[in-house]
Design a protein around this nucleic acid. Structure first.
Lengths: 234, 234
DNA sequence: TTATAAATTTAGGTTAACCTAAATTTATAT
DNA sequence: ATATAAATTTAGGTTAACCTAAATTTATAA
């Protein structure tokens, strides 16, 4: 990689370096998934040593992207949240574009978008948004924030929490593991697919479900990563 | 910018850092335009101090991307040329994509592609190539190298060399200046446009030409950047 | 042909982001 | 309540790519 200066080359918005963007994005994600964000959780997520993460946190706190309570954790400021949502918007718009226009599969897109989110200009963002018709979810069902930082979360819950007899609709599949995505689509699960829950296996918490009229066993790990809404309680 | 290590994150091909790619690409370009490539010409083109360029040249020579004759100049090795053509291919494919699919203007695309060429995966390259139907020129008329490094240059010459009475066809417009591109399209010049040369002004070398039945004066600078083929000598 | 100018290289220094090891603080478990 | 473990921070060091200033080499012009 390359230049070690703040980024004036790129884009319209005066923005942070690629790596700082990664920190900000992942702080946002950890914060919305786990609630609090610690040095170690960030370190784990970014695969960067706790020492380095600690340093970077200090720096980001100084430039008011986040607030830091030493030994406790961090929280993005309003400014930081805006940046995060902007990056996430670019990431998800690009994922959508890859699927819709370039016919990538949903398990191929995350890595591509991971790189592209940092170089996407505002013009680009707008053109893509326009071509796609202002989508509000990405190919995994994750909401796409608006340009000014609003994000509408759909009301879904992990399928593992559903009960036998229910009919549910898939609203989101976690994009955290591309092999999982690949497997999930191989058994016929796509967004909006309806699934009937037949049975919950007590020994391993796996589910016996019906998809496309076929009975399939879904492991608890997978069921934790598929988010659904109830359409019939039975 | 970001990580200071050689690039393992990205893409299928094990590739050089973003900045090294820039050196390689611009060495290739200088070499095909000016013939020889010196430290100062590279320094000028990249807007990086001669000292830094000199250092980088040493490094690239060590890893056999180019050969360096101290105090004389550099030349890409076969390996280096292949890398260069690969980067140029990605750049030009992306420019084509921006124009054809996202409806960018030809004066907006170079900066965008400048960034994207470095993060484009091989998969991406292929998908885009496919969607575009394997184009062999980009929106400025520059040839797009094939995946294995072949490049077919069209036989064109700068319009400044044309003579009164000729009819010529625009085959390429230099992409070196986006304002020039913007101006050129504003006077109705696009690729394949036919132009009749009426007169050559001896005092400033400008040309009086007919485009779309309208008479227009074209400065020598512009005429040097528009490349044409003769379709009628008269 | 030799002095000066221009181009190039080398020397020495900076910065962002990383790292390991050591020091510190907080949490946990007897 | 205190000792140990875990998490965090600080200290000190590395690397790639940049820079300016000084030294060297090559080119030019009197």
């Amino acid at each position: 990689m390359i230049r070690a200066h703040a980024d004036t080359t790129n884009k319209e918005t005066i923005m942070a370096s690629e790596q700082i963007e990664n920190y900000i994005k992942n702080i946002y994600k950890l914060s919305s998934n786990e609630g609090k964000v610690t040095t170690s959780s960030l370190s784990e997520k970014l695969q960067i040593s706790p020492a380095s993460v600690s340093e970077m946190i200090k720096k980001l706190a100084e430039e008011r992207t986040l607030t830091h309570t030493p030994y406790k954790g961090v929280e993005l400021t309003e400014e930081g949240k805006k940046l995060a949502l902007r990056i996430i918007r670019k990431h998800r718009l690009w994922e959508m574009f890859l699927v819709e226009v370039l016919h990538f599969r949903w398990d191929e897109i995350d890595d591509e978008a991971e790189r592209f989110e940092h170089i996407m200009s505002d013009t680009m963002e707008e053109k893509i948004d326009h071509v796609l018709g202002h989508p509000n979810i990405d190919p995994h069902g994750d909401p796409i924030p608006t340009r000014d930082g609003e994000i509408h979360c759909t009301m879904s819950y992990p399928m593992i929490e559903s009960h036998p007899g229910m009919r549910v609709r898939v609203l989101r599949v976690s994009d955290s593991n591309s092999d999982l995505l690949k497997y999930v689509s191989s058994i016929g699960i796509t967004l909006n697919k309806q699934i009937r829950i037949k049975q919950k296996m007590s020994f391993d918490n796996s589910l016996l479900v019906v998809i496309n009229k076929k009975e399939i066993n879904i492991s608890s790990t997978i069921a934790e990563n598929i988010f659904v809404e109830t359409i019939e309680k039975e």
